[in-house]
Design a protein around this nucleic acid. Structure first.
Lengths: 220, 220
DNA sequence: GCCCATCGTGAATCATGGTTCACATTTTCG
DNA sequence: CGAAAATGTGAACCATGATTCACGATGGGC
């Protein structure tokens, strides 16, 4: 047996695979999904275009893995924020505001993952991101209902609607670019309040909940 | 001068132009924007592919005109419903519910016009549709605020968020297909209520407003 | 009927960008 | 070192679908 894959090689392969994903991610972050093209991504990763296919059977698979990774990261952030909150009620604005803030911070990437037009096949795999966010929100809504903080409602529908409201208000084509931090913060607060009202929390209470949601520091 | 365009010809040209637009519209209605391809559209219109370019300089222009036409039609419906309502307050749910019902009725077309992934250039011209809806809603929100029915708020932001919520809840990828009329009606009501709450109308009042919003009959 | 401008045609062209593959390079190990 | 296996390469290939254009058909005025 004149060749057996050694540890060093395995590591190198893994690193290269990672490099491709990273390259794809920064391409998306800078130029949206439209900039996630095999040739440029390969160049960024320091390899030839054909090599990408040694790691991913098709571009769709690459995008799928990227979407999954980003989704996991965002879900983790939302969960962290929610679990740091004192109860099921304040966990809700914490999760919502966290999503909003992070979406605004990496606006382009979020746009790439959620709303930028892409070919149908890519769109399909991108769905995991959207679904993850909605599901996470849905769980929080259910919990709040169970604890009697929210009126009974179709949690899945409410969650979907909130995702839509957030995305459209923050990064959709109708959103006024909230570049300055102050404006961004205001937009996040306004939309979080709107979301809570939509769920059936009366305003005065909602305002109290949101104000205590401090902006977590930027990470990574 | 051996040739001058006569009336009859002008009419024929106009009719053909209309036929192209109609063909594009039904293609979008049946198969989404992805089905709006020059060759099939031309065939539907009973002409050769090349002929389309005698009427529209580029596909983008065709889509732009289609988007404008659909937008005008939808805006007109919303306005009709709103103006039939007794006051600025009930005009709001009327407009919202009308948009929702119609969107659900021509789900595929609305999807094609609002959320289906398409090439960037087409997406840009499609924007007029989204904007029209948002602007119409925004005007209604402003009116309701002026009349003291709604708390002061960023009307543009609220309008954008509501568009997002409606679209995502009704026809986005997360929406559960509400095929049966009964389910559809329920979804429309639920989302309209959610939208009103989001704007700051307390629930009891909102419920009263929505219930009186009867479903207009299908038209065209 | 004849001439000219316009209109209609559809096969050929172009652009884009993913995917393949014959070949070169590298790695492992006797 | 040499053979075998795995990896890397990038130019060529392919698919899709918009756009062009040389040419024939049609319409209008004399």
């Amino acid at each position: 047996m004149p060749y057996r894959r050694t540890d060093k090689v395995t590591r190198r392969l893994a690193a290269r695979r990672e490099a491709i994903l990273t390259a794809a991610r920064s391409a998306a972050n800078e130029g949206g999904m439209g900039a996630v093209l095999i040739a440029p991504v390969a160049e960024r990763a320091g390899i030839a275009a054909g090599t990408v296919y040694r790691y991913f059977p098709a571009k769709t698979d690459l995008v799928a893995e990227l979407a999954t990774a980003v989704a996991e990261q965002e879900i983790a952030a939302m969960r962290r924020a929610a679990e740091a909150a004192p109860g099921a009620l304040s966990a809700l604005p914490a999760a919502i505001a966290t999503f909003a803030m992070r979406a605004l911070r990496t606006r382009r990437l979020t746009w790439a993952m959620l709303t930028e037009p892409v070919e149908a096949e890519v769109d399909a795999v991108r769905l995991v991101y959207r679904q993850s966010i909605a599901r996470e929100l849905e769980a929080r809504i259910r919990a709040a209902i169970n604890d009697g903080h929210l009126p009974a409602q179709d949690a899945a529908l409410s969650a979907a609607a909130l995702v839509g409201a957030m995305v459209e208000g923050l990064i959709g084509p109708l959103a006024s670019a909230a570049d300055e931090p102050a404006k961004a913060r205001l937009a996040v607060q306004t939309l979080t309040l709107l979301a809570l009202r939509a769920l059936g929390i009366v305003d005065a209470r909602a305002r109290g909940l949101v104000v205590q949601t401090a902006l977590p520091p930027a990470e990574e």
